[in-house]
Amino acid sequence: MDELKVIVFKLATEEYGIEVDKVQTIERMMPITRVPKTLGFVKGVINLRGVVIPVIDLRGRFNLPSQEYNDQTRIIIVEVEKMQVGFIVDSANDVVDIKRSSIEKPPEVVGGVKARYLDGVAKLDEERLLVMLNLAEVLDKTEVVQLESIED
């Protein structure tokens, strides 16, 4: 398969993509229960049809300036290696097909996000760039936990 179906969401200035088969559902903002004494960017847990799922503020995860949630805010529930996690993003409203061959190696930093969290950059048209997320790296906590413990 050369074509790739991708969910497009917005975070600050950039548009990002996650492969559609890793996305379980996209939800509007809902009440989040805070979990005390946990990682800073973990907003808490939500009840998604009977399953308790932790949600991450993706801006916080990438150390981008935070922003008030509004009616555009969405929670994208992804599932990676049986682990379900919700990402809070500014908005999500598009599904596109891109060619695998059009994905290029990402530059060092895109829109403030380090290259290690990225799989590549795909050009949608002349003006639109789509940044593909590397979910495994985004969900990898070892680096974060180490950082936080140093801060302690």
């Binding site: 229960t33 979990v35 005390p36 004494k37 946990t38 990682l39 973990v42 847990v45 009840n47 009977g50 399953v51 308790v52 799922i53 932790p54 049986k82 682990m83 379900q84 996690v85 969900l139 906590k141 936990v145």
Partner: peptide, 18 residues
């Protein structure tokens, strides 16, 4: 309910309920 495997264990919290 479990808090999911993503969250590290939090001292004092054993799980969640709805």
């Amino acid at each position: 309910k479990s808090l999911g495997s993503y969250l590290p264990e939090t001292r004092g919290i054993s799980g969640a309920t709805i």
